[in-house]
Computed example of a mutant assay.
Amino acid sequence: MTIAATRTTTAVPTRALLACGAISGPLYFLTSFTQAAVRDGFDLTKHPASMLSNGDAGWIQVTNFLVTGILMIAGAIGLSRTLEPGRGSTWGPRLLGVFGVSLLFAAVFKADAGNGFPVGSGPATLSTAGILHMTAGSVGFLSLIVATFVFASRFSREGHRGWAICSRATGIAFFASFAGISSGNANAVVMLAFWATVLLAWGWVTAVVIRTAR
């Protein structure tokens, strides 16, 4: 009786944590794309989502970073509870947790305005907050990229070849676009590719969390 009660008690919060991780990506992109569509001067071919933190409505994106960061950390904790012991189960959730923490830092240290957003802003200039924002983003994105390969290794060991291939492909695509935008030559193609692969990577996170929950 005691064992059954204990299992019920632990299963409910774990499912809740996994649910938090599953909705973090959809919530982030729903909020970001909605703002991108309605805020004057914002252009998907020129501006990353982090620049939405600027301007009178910037608090919306700041809140978006905070909420989705907390949800991602919760999801990482949920994954660590449900995956069996092993290298993948140890480092995979930890790396996703680092990604979640990076979103919190991105909320505290806003990206610099510039390149026409908000309307009227001139060329982008680097501030201390902007540098810290980029540093946090780089650490978070690299953690997410490495996580795709860590989970890919686990899927391979378990015989889930399709999941392993998709995980590695996601990591490679995301790394390529991240390298492109970090090069300083972020033209329209590079920027759109970055948006697409961030969406892909977060979609991968959602899929892995849902798979685990099932």
Rank of each mutant, 00 (worst) to 15 (best):
K46M: 15
V119A: 15
A164M: 02
R39F: 11
G116D: 06
A57E: 11
S183M: 11
D43Q: 13
I210A: 01
A213F: 02
A11H: 02
F141I: 12
L142V: 15
E84Y: 00
T206Q: 03
T206I: 03
F178Y: 12
A37Y: 09
R87F: 14
F141T: 09
S167A: 15
N185R: 10
S80M: 00
T90K: 07
V38Y: 04
W195N: 12
A179Q: 13
M51Q: 14
D56Y: 07
T148S: 09
T45D: 13
F109K: 07
L144R: 02
L103Y: 08
I77K: 00
C20D: 03
V108H: 06
L83D: 00
S121Q: 07
R168D: 04
V67S: 09
H160L: 02
I172E: 03
Q61C: 10
V67D: 13
K110D: 04
A201G: 13
A76I: 01
T68H: 03
H133C: 15
S53F: 10
G114K: 09
V98T: 12
I165C: 01
A213S: 10
T8A: 15
V98E: 05
F194L: 10
N64S: 12
T197I: 11
D56Q: 10
I73H: 08
T6H: 11
I3E: 08
L199V: 15
T34M: 13
T8L: 14
V119T: 14
I145W: 08
L96N: 03
G137E: 06
I172T: 13
K110I: 11
H47Q: 06
I210E: 00
S89T: 01
V139K: 05
F117S: 11
G171A: 12
S32R: 04
R168P: 03
T34V: 15
P13K: 08
G97P: 04
T9Q: 12
A11R: 05
R15V: 10
G140H: 06
S24Y: 02
